[in-house]
């Protein structure tokens, strides 16, 4: 049963934590290592993982500490606290929530039909103009608009089931 709980925690938080470590904590290439180390500790040392009363806080704070640890290791000489704070921001729950929301939205976008997904990513995430997309993909502006509208409709229903029912 513990393995099932571990699997649940891993599936729910792993990708969000990697992105949090890479982007919010500035670990970049070491992000996966940091998150792996936290989950490894959880799996091997903290044998009764069910006793964790707040898994979200536990995991995000653990990764936060790993980032501090790794940033210290990377700096062999004098480190001032002030400069360290630039690299590793204090842990904030709203940042953890932000990454969980990003994860949810990111996974929803990945579920979109492939063409719809491609156009949506170019327009909304990469910030390309509709005109540039039509030129690059050799499609009509109307097609871009339709695909964006389709994507937004799917995403809205995903995030807000009531909206879908309407």
């Amino acid at each position: 049963m513990d393995k099932e709980i571990f699997r649940y925690l891993f599936d729910t938080y792993y990708n969000a934590l990697c992105n949090y470590a890479a982007n919010a904590l500035g670990l970049k290439d070491e992000a996966e290592d940091a998150v792996m180390e936290v989950f490894t500790h959880l799996w091997t040392v903290n044998s009764n993982i069910s006793q964790i009363s707040n898994p979200k806080a536990y995991l995000f704070k653990s990764v936060y500490h790993k980032a501090i640890e790794k940033s210290r290791v990377k700096r062999p000489v004098i480190v001032s606290l002030e400069s360290e704070k630039i690299v590793v921001e204090d842990y904030k729950e709203e940042i953890a929530d932000e990454y969980l929301l990003k994860e949810k939205i990111y996974q929803s976008i990945r579920q979109l039909p492939s063409k719809c997904q491609l156009i949506f990513v170019k327009a909304k995430i990469d910030g390309m103009s509709y005109k540039d997309i039509t030129g690059e993909m050799d499609i009509a502006v109307k097609t871009v608009e339709n695909q964006i509208a389709k994507a937004m409709k799917i995403l809205r229903s995903e995030f807000n089931p009531q909206h879908h029912e309407l």
Binding site: R7, F10, D11, Y14, N15, C18, N19, A22, N23, A31, E32, V35, M36, F39, T40, W43, K102, I105, Y106, I109, R110, K124, I125, D126, G127
Partner: peptide, 19 residues
């Protein structure tokens, strides 16, 4: 949505099996 620009998918299953 533009804040997802640096967001990516990490190889989750490989990591899980390693652990």
């Amino acid at each position: 949505y533009e804040t997802l620009k640096d967001y990516r998918q990490y190889p989750k299953e490989t990591a899980f099996q390693k652990i």
